[in-house]
Structure formats: structure tokens, C-alpha cells
């Protein structure tokens, strides 16, 4: 009984022409590199003396992540395009389950590019990007070898639109909700692993998911 509507916005999206193949190759290579790094690290860990470092009472660790970020469409389906993004942070590990820290990074939420797009105002080249720099207070718990993260904060989000020979850049602070699940192999004072994260941005009603290679280092133990 319902009308199935193909609205103008759908048509508009359908007009985009994005050449995916070089990026797909790049992604495949990156995944191979990530998996190789994880495997090597796992092997190195097996060769090393486990337990050399005893559990300290307090630790401050830093970590850096690099990986791919995808936006979830409102239907909950992952959008095709993914972008290389980075995050980093620090955690205070007071010797119990709960660790507290901060998380930031540079997230490319969305990128679009259309050449010679036809519009009511003539043909134009169109470029758009949406990036975000989060500042999040993160709670972390290590539960049975898995690292669970949950956090709240704000993100400085910037939109850039280029069309009709005019570039428009606008920025807003947005509340940001963060959750992640990670797995990390300890190796001396280092750790290497994978982290899956979800960022949710207020006002925009956007959710982004990322898979990132996670490198961590215990800066201070006491």
C-alpha cells in the first residue's frame, strides 16, 4: 500500500561517480600489512620472556591507532566509502579494573568528489569532506583479555564544501559518544593489537565505526 519513493536525493547520490578500484587495492594491501604486523608481534611475544615486567601498582600508557573509518547510514548500513583515520590517547591505569584516560585523533568522517556535476545552476566540480577532532574522556576496563572502552566528550567537526568555484568551510563543536573493543598483545612495555570503535556525534545524528591497528606503550610505571 505504501508508495515506494525514489526521491531527488537518491537520484543525486546515484549521480556520483567514484572510482573505487585503486582505493580497494590500497585497502587490501593495508589489511595484509596489519595482519602481518599482528602475526609478527604475536610470534615475537612467544619468543620473549613473559612476565618479565611484574604488574605495577600504577601505569600511564599512551597509544596511537591508525585504520579505516566508515560512516553508518541512517538505515544502519555501512556506507561504501571508508577513510584512513588516526587516533591517539593516554590512559591512567591505577591498578584495578577501571582505567581512565583521554582520547583524540583526526577522523575523516566523509569524503565526496564529483566532476562535472549537472545542477540547475549549471555544471560544477563538487568536493565535500567532513572531518573531526575528538576530545573524549574514556573509561577503560580490561575484561578477560579484551579491552572495553566507553567515553564521552566533544568533537571539533569541520565541513568543507567546494562547488561553483566557491569553497565553504564551517566548524562546530559536537557532543561525542565513544565505545570500543580492543585486543592487545603485551610485548615488554609495548602492546600491539586491533581496536574496533564506534563514534556517535550529536546534532549530526551520525555514527561512524572504525577498525584500527593499535600500538601502545607504558610511559610510566610505579
Amino acid at each position: 500500500m505504501n508508495i515506494i519513493r525514489i526521491n531527488k536525493s537518491t537520484k543525486f547520490y546515484m549521480n556520483f561517480r567514484i572510482n573505487q578500484s585503486p582505493k580497494t587495492n590500497f585497502k587490501m594491501k593495508s589489511i595484509v600489512v596489519l595482519l602481518s604486523a599482528l602475526f609478527s608481534c604475536h610470534w615475537m611475544q612467544a619468543q620473549s620472556n613473559r612476565g618479565e615486567i611484574t604488574n605495577p601498582l600504577y601505569t600511564i600508557s599512551i597509544h596511537g591507532d591508525v585504520g579505516f573509518l566508515k560512516m553508518l547510514a541512517q538505515s544502519g548500513v555501512l556506507k561504501k566509502q571508508s577513510n584512513l583515520s588516526y587516533s591517539f590517547g593516554a590512559l591512567w591505569e591505577p591498578g584495578h579494573l577501571l582505567n581512565i584516560g583521554i582520547e583524540s585523533g583526526f577522523l575523516i568522517l566523509e569524503k565526496r568528489s564529483v566532476e562535472k556535476m549537472n545542477t540547475d545552476f549549471g555544471t560544477t566540480n563538487f568536493k565535500a569532506s567532513l572531518t573531526s577532532i575528538p576530545a573524549i574522556v574514556v573509561f577503560n576496563m580490561k575484561l578477560h583479555k579484551l579491552n572495553l572502552y566507553g567515553g564521552l566528550g566533544a568533537s571539533y567537526t569541520t565541513s568543507s564544501i567546494e562547488a561553483f568555484d566557491l569553497k565553504t568551510i564551517t566548524s562546530r563543536w559536537l557532543y561525542t559518544y565513544y565505545a570500543a573493543l580492543g585486543y592487545s598483545y603485551p610485548f615488554h612495555r609495548f602492546g600491539i593489537g586491533l581496536k574496533g570503535s564506534i563514534y556517535s556525534f550529536s546534532k549530526l545524528n551520525k555514527t561512524d565505526v572504525s577498525i584500527m591497528l593499535d600500538l601502545s606503550f607504558d610511559v610510566l610505571n610505579w
Partner: peptide
Amino acid sequence: MNSIDAQD
């Protein structure tokens, strides 16, 4: 990285 065993 985490020291959950510090307190039993």
C-alpha cells in the same frame, strides 16, 4: 598493559 591482578 593493564594490572588487574594488583589487588586480588
